[in-house]
Design a protein around this nucleic acid. Sequence first.
DNA 1: GCCTAGCACTCGAGCGCCTAGAGTGCTAAC
DNA 2: GTTAGCACTCTAGGCGCTCGAGTGCTAGGC
Lengths: 348, 348
Amino acid sequence: MLARELDARKQQILWAVIREYVARAEPVASEALCQRYGLGVSAATIRNGMHALTEMGYLCQPHTSAGRVPTDRAYRLYVDWLMAGHPSAGVEQRLSAAERERIRRRMQSKDHPEDALAEAVQTLASLTDYPSVASTPGGPRRLQHLHLVPLSDQRALLVVVAEGAVDQRVVRLQRPATEDELRQVSQLLTRALAGLPVSDITDGVAERIAAALPDQRELVTAVVAQLRRYGGLRTGVRFFVEGVSNILKQPEFQDVRRAHPVLAALDREEVLRDVLLPAPPDVHVRIGRENPVDEMRSCSVVAAAYRVRGRTVGVVGVVGPTRMPYARTIALVRYLAQALSQTLSYGV
Amino acid sequence: MLARELDARKQQILWAVIREYVARAEPVASEALCQRYGLGVSAATIRNGMHALTEMGYLCQPHTSAGRVPTDRAYRLYVDWLMAGHPSAGVEQRLSAAERERIRRRMQSKDHPEDALAEAVQTLASLTDYPSVASTPGGPRRLQHLHLVPLSDQRALLVVVAEGAVDQRVVRLQRPATEDELRQVSQLLTRALAGLPVSDITDGVAERIAAALPDQRELVTAVVAQLRRYGGLRTGVRFFVEGVSNILKQPEFQDVRRAHPVLAALDREEVLRDVLLPAPPDVHVRIGRENPVDEMRSCSVVAAAYRVRGRTVGVVGVVGPTRMPYARTIALVRYLAQALSQTLSYGV
DNA sequence: GCCTAGCACTCGAGCGCCTAGAGTGCTAAC
DNA sequence: GTTAGCACTCTAGGCGCTCGAGTGCTAGGC
């Protein structure tokens, strides 16, 4: 099957230009394609094809006497083609068994969800050589357990266990509470709230629970207030980032004026949010101008959701130049999301 | 009082060159000093002084017909001068009341130690415009509380409360345990271990405790094993980093080949460890070649310890070019470490 | 004896010019 | 429809030049 609009030769040429440009980061000449790819025709013929592809918006020329560079549109066509399951013109998009094994080994036996996320972004960054990002588990998680641990007379620690995540908050006590009292409240709250999506907890709920234990009204209210802050879908999500400086290895970012906006954007949480979320069902690729954030228009983002026991809770992905070996990057991100899902589902 | 070796005039000139170079990032000419600083002598005289300072190793020249640039040695002299409590040649090193107030407000009411650290590095990065780093609380903390929370039949969550830090680990259960059993073990362990420095916990301790509750030997052993992993002084410390891309705003890092090693180093935990730790008693300044890590030799690090209830547990600081307004940076880092100490001592 | 004005000297930044080479687009022939 | 040939275009980079900044030195002044 052919990509829409393109005849077999044009597609061959376009895929070849993409491969060559991804490999060398320099405008691709007709002669070079002729030599290195067995297209069976002369450079002149390839030139004709490249000319047509330029008119169609798939290629562009930095200047008259330069070779061709693929446009965002070309990458989009290519990625759609890959995602539709087509073999990728000689590029192996599956990972080797050895690679899978290595990834799996790195990811397993992380007892702490945050360790697992840290390991995931480290692995991804080292395998792709791109900045890698993961969001902490978020979304409508169901609460499993609450625990209050005494810290001092004025403070207790609230441990929240929800699907795929554990977190803690300090709760201020209006008056000293014994360990027994804390346990009592913990049990009451756990019984009342377990199974509820964290985001569903409202002040009304607090009232109802407090009614069952009027003595501890303030404490219950304080705990629920903390839960609401914690559960607010947005506020809870943080990001693990690794290998930001990798972007400076890319030839397109040798100029600081190009690199700086991207690096600055990667420093900002709200940018990561906009670029990565919402979690896509499968691997998601955003190419150049498709990105919602201006500073990222010179980059591509490849991201995949990870799951805890089947429920999508976060995203992991990479940010690289639009000139990117998409087949391999997609395969890596997809596999890493799987491995991470497995580790997290096991672990907590 | 004068800095050793330098007469009054030379010192005046050197301080002026430093101020001027810090402000403009370009080699400083004798004429410029003459115009902008009331030194009361002509450019020719200043040239004589600059010549001498060059011979003494405090200034250098990019080339014959250029102005002078301060060396690391000059900054060291200047910083020692500042740290000895001398007024800093017209530069205000104290923070204004308004600034103090703003910082204090940003830092207060962070219920979660990690939130406080995150806020600290964000504040520091935005005030200095340099990459900012903080280590998580570490060192010989005394254990305060242990708590086991049930997760599933095969797993329990171990919540560790120690001075200035709370953390959690998953413990695998050999056989299902009831909530009561977990509580019993928690209490036993807390009673046995509270007050002990986390790093002092050994397998021998586990044996002794387990003897008191033979039924739960495996669980006790598993918990202690996790504590040892956690308590290993080195492994526990992580770093919060913010504003890494700020380094690209500096003129000395406009060349990617200069900027990349620094950014890559800031991505690596062991580098941060070497550069920031051990925590200094007061503010500590490492200038250029004084840094233990090669990639950081073009940078200066200003760092200060923060404390939890009087005990030094971590470091917070910035990384910038050697050309840095030291008086202000030192004041900011010092104040931020104080504010952070206060927040953490209050909070947990 | 220290300071200063004057001046010759050095060096880099920036500009214009030039050439070599890469790669195209077109045309005419197969 | 394909190809060889060729004229055309545009960039990268080397060279030489000038300009200006800033110094170091020296001779004269307070």
